[in-house]
Simulated scan of single mutants.
Amino acid sequence: MKRFAVAAVAAIALATPALAQDEATFTGFRVEGLIGYDVVSTPAISDQDGLLYGVGIGYDFNAGPVVLGVEADVTDSTTKIAGIVSDRDLYVGARVGTVVGQSLLYAKAGYTNARLESPVGNANFDGVRLGAGVEYALGGNMFLKGEYRYSNYEADLSRHQVVGGFGIRF
Protein backbone atom coordinates (compact mmCIF):
# COMPACT_ATOMS: atom_id res chain seq x y z
CA MET A 1 0.00 0.00 0.00
CA LYS A 2 2.83 2.39 0.82
CA ARG A 3 4.32 2.01 -2.67
CA PHE A 4 1.00 2.82 -4.32
CA ALA A 5 0.42 5.85 -2.08
CA VAL A 6 3.92 7.15 -2.87
CA ALA A 7 3.35 6.57 -6.60
CA ALA A 8 0.02 8.43 -6.51
CA VAL A 9 1.52 11.40 -4.66
CA ALA A 10 4.50 11.46 -7.05
CA ALA A 11 2.22 11.42 -10.10
CA ILE A 12 0.29 14.40 -8.81
CA ALA A 13 3.43 16.26 -7.70
CA LEU A 14 5.19 15.72 -11.02
CA ALA A 15 2.25 16.97 -13.11
CA THR A 16 3.77 19.97 -14.87
CA PRO A 17 2.35 23.29 -13.63
CA ALA A 18 3.05 24.77 -17.09
CA LEU A 19 0.22 22.63 -18.48
CA ALA A 20 -2.27 24.56 -16.35
CA GLN A 21 -1.73 28.09 -17.62
CA ASP A 22 -5.39 29.12 -17.47
CA GLU A 23 -7.12 29.60 -14.14
CA ALA A 24 -8.40 26.24 -12.93
CA THR A 25 -12.12 25.62 -13.10
CA PHE A 26 -13.71 22.79 -11.18
CA THR A 27 -17.30 23.16 -12.38
CA GLY A 28 -19.45 21.22 -14.80
CA PHE A 29 -19.87 17.60 -15.84
CA ARG A 30 -16.88 15.25 -15.47
CA VAL A 31 -15.94 11.71 -16.48
CA GLU A 32 -12.96 9.84 -15.01
CA GLY A 33 -11.09 6.56 -15.10
CA LEU A 34 -10.08 5.15 -11.71
CA ILE A 35 -7.38 2.76 -10.55
CA GLY A 36 -6.10 2.02 -7.08
CA TYR A 37 -5.37 -0.19 -4.12
CA ASP A 38 -8.25 -2.01 -2.37
CA VAL A 39 -8.21 -3.66 1.08
CA VAL A 40 -11.29 -5.60 2.22
CA SER A 41 -11.67 -6.44 5.92
CA THR A 42 -13.95 -8.92 7.67
CA PRO A 43 -13.93 -9.91 11.35
CA ALA A 44 -13.28 -13.61 10.68
CA ILE A 45 -10.62 -13.33 7.94
CA SER A 46 -7.45 -11.22 7.85
CA ASP A 47 -7.36 -8.23 5.51
CA GLN A 48 -7.05 -9.05 1.82
CA ASP A 49 -5.89 -6.63 -0.85
CA GLY A 50 -6.03 -6.22 -4.61
CA LEU A 51 -6.28 -3.86 -7.56
CA LEU A 52 -9.31 -1.60 -7.91
CA TYR A 53 -10.41 -0.24 -11.33
CA GLY A 54 -13.48 1.51 -12.68
CA VAL A 55 -15.13 4.67 -13.96
CA GLY A 56 -16.84 7.65 -12.36
CA ILE A 57 -19.06 10.57 -13.34
CA GLY A 58 -20.02 13.74 -11.54
CA TYR A 59 -21.24 17.30 -11.72
CA ASP A 60 -19.71 20.16 -9.72
CA PHE A 61 -20.79 23.79 -9.26
CA ASN A 62 -19.55 26.85 -7.40
CA ALA A 63 -21.48 27.84 -4.30
CA GLY A 64 -19.65 30.94 -3.16
CA PRO A 65 -16.32 30.01 -1.58
CA VAL A 66 -16.88 26.25 -1.98
CA VAL A 67 -17.42 23.77 -4.79
CA LEU A 68 -20.34 21.36 -4.33
CA GLY A 69 -20.83 18.22 -6.38
CA VAL A 70 -22.74 15.01 -6.90
CA GLU A 71 -20.99 11.89 -8.14
CA ALA A 72 -21.30 8.19 -8.87
CA ASP A 73 -18.87 5.43 -9.73
CA VAL A 74 -18.75 1.76 -10.48
CA THR A 75 -15.59 -0.16 -9.67
CA ASP A 76 -14.40 -3.74 -9.58
CA SER A 77 -11.55 -5.35 -7.67
CA THR A 78 -9.18 -8.30 -7.87
CA THR A 79 -9.40 -8.79 -4.09
CA LYS A 80 -10.16 -12.37 -3.00
CA ILE A 81 -11.00 -13.51 0.52
CA ALA A 82 -10.79 -17.27 1.20
CA GLY A 83 -12.44 -18.24 -2.10
CA ILE A 84 -14.82 -15.25 -2.06
CA VAL A 85 -14.27 -12.72 -4.84
CA SER A 86 -14.83 -9.01 -4.26
CA ASP A 87 -17.03 -8.09 -7.21
CA ARG A 88 -18.42 -4.73 -8.25
CA ASP A 89 -18.84 -1.77 -5.92
CA LEU A 90 -21.44 0.94 -6.65
CA TYR A 91 -21.28 4.40 -5.11
CA VAL A 92 -23.44 7.54 -5.25
CA GLY A 93 -22.78 10.55 -3.08
CA ALA A 94 -21.84 14.19 -2.70
CA ARG A 95 -18.68 16.16 -2.12
CA VAL A 96 -17.68 19.60 -0.92
CA GLY A 97 -14.36 21.26 -1.61
CA THR A 98 -12.32 24.39 -1.92
CA VAL A 99 -10.03 25.58 -4.71
CA VAL A 100 -6.40 26.17 -3.76
CA GLY A 101 -4.40 27.37 -6.79
CA GLN A 102 -4.69 24.68 -9.48
CA SER A 103 -6.13 22.13 -7.05
CA LEU A 104 -9.48 21.23 -5.57
CA LEU A 105 -9.31 19.81 -2.03
CA TYR A 106 -12.48 17.93 -1.13
CA ALA A 107 -14.29 15.62 1.27
CA LYS A 108 -17.00 13.17 0.19
CA ALA A 109 -19.75 11.01 1.65
CA GLY A 110 -22.44 8.74 0.27
CA TYR A 111 -24.08 5.37 -0.18
CA THR A 112 -22.15 2.32 -1.43
CA ASN A 113 -23.17 -1.22 -2.31
CA ALA A 114 -20.62 -4.03 -2.62
CA ARG A 115 -21.21 -7.47 -4.07
CA LEU A 116 -19.17 -10.52 -3.07
CA GLU A 117 -19.24 -13.70 -5.17
CA SER A 118 -18.72 -17.19 -3.78
CA PRO A 119 -19.21 -20.72 -5.09
CA VAL A 120 -22.53 -20.91 -3.20
CA GLY A 121 -23.92 -17.56 -4.46
CA ASN A 122 -23.61 -13.81 -4.39
CA ALA A 123 -24.24 -11.42 -1.51
CA ASN A 124 -24.82 -7.65 -1.60
CA PHE A 125 -23.85 -5.35 1.26
CA ASP A 126 -25.12 -1.79 1.79
CA GLY A 127 -22.85 0.77 3.40
CA VAL A 128 -21.58 4.30 3.85
CA ARG A 129 -18.46 5.71 2.20
CA LEU A 130 -16.37 8.62 3.53
CA GLY A 131 -13.35 10.02 1.79
CA ALA A 132 -11.07 12.94 1.01
CA GLY A 133 -8.98 13.84 -1.98
CA VAL A 134 -7.40 16.33 -4.31
CA GLU A 135 -7.92 17.09 -7.99
CA TYR A 136 -5.18 18.86 -9.91
CA ALA A 137 -6.09 20.78 -13.08
CA LEU A 138 -3.80 19.91 -16.00
CA GLY A 139 -5.36 22.36 -18.46
CA GLY A 140 -7.57 21.66 -21.44
CA ASN A 141 -10.30 20.54 -18.99
CA MET A 142 -8.21 17.51 -17.95
CA PHE A 143 -7.36 16.64 -14.35
CA LEU A 144 -5.55 14.13 -12.16
CA LYS A 145 -6.97 13.05 -8.83
CA GLY A 146 -5.93 11.14 -5.77
CA GLU A 147 -8.17 10.16 -2.88
CA TYR A 148 -8.56 7.97 0.16
CA ARG A 149 -11.88 6.16 0.74
CA TYR A 150 -13.26 4.27 3.70
CA SER A 151 -16.44 2.20 3.28
CA ASN A 152 -18.30 0.57 6.17
CA TYR A 153 -20.84 -2.07 5.15
CA GLU A 154 -23.33 -4.15 7.07
CA ALA A 155 -22.16 -7.52 8.51
CA ASP A 156 -18.88 -5.93 9.77
CA LEU A 157 -17.43 -5.71 6.26
CA SER A 158 -15.22 -2.69 5.57
CA ARG A 159 -12.96 -1.43 2.84
CA HIS A 160 -10.00 0.96 2.62
CA GLN A 161 -9.02 2.28 -0.81
CA VAL A 162 -6.33 4.57 -2.19
CA VAL A 163 -7.46 5.66 -5.66
CA GLY A 164 -5.91 7.67 -8.49
CA GLY A 165 -7.71 8.92 -11.53
CA PHE A 166 -7.57 10.83 -14.77
CA GLY A 167 -10.59 12.76 -15.97
CA ILE A 168 -12.07 15.30 -18.35
CA ARG A 169 -14.58 18.09 -17.63
CA PHE A 170 -17.18 19.12 -20.18
Score class of each variant (00 low, 15 high):
A10D: 13
L14W: 06
L14A: 15
A15D: 05
A18S: 06
Q21E: 13
E23P: 03
T27G: 04
R30L: 13
R30P: 00
E32Q: 09
E32L: 07
L34W: 01
D38F: 03
V39P: 05
I45A: 08
Q48H: 11
Q48N: 15
D49K: 10
G50P: 04
I57D: 07
Y59T: 06
A63W: 10
G64R: 05
V67C: 01
V67L: 03
L68G: 04
G69F: 01
G69K: 02
V70S: 11
D73C: 04
V74L: 15
D76P: 01
T78N: 10
T79R: 01
I81D: 10
A82L: 05
L90M: 11
L90P: 02
G93C: 02
A94I: 13
V96E: 04
V99H: 05
V100Q: 09
L105T: 13
G110V: 01
T112R: 01
A114L: 14
N122F: 04
D126P: 03
V128S: 02
V128K: 01
R129Q: 09
G131W: 00
G131C: 05
V134P: 09
A137F: 07
L138G: 08
G140E: 11
F143P: 00
K145C: 04
R149C: 09
Y150Q: 02
S151V: 00
N152K: 12
Y153T: 10
Y153K: 02
A155I: 08
D156I: 08
R159D: 14
H160K: 13
H160L: 05
V162F: 15
V162T: 11
V163L: 10
G164M: 13
F166R: 03
R169S: 09
R169V: 06
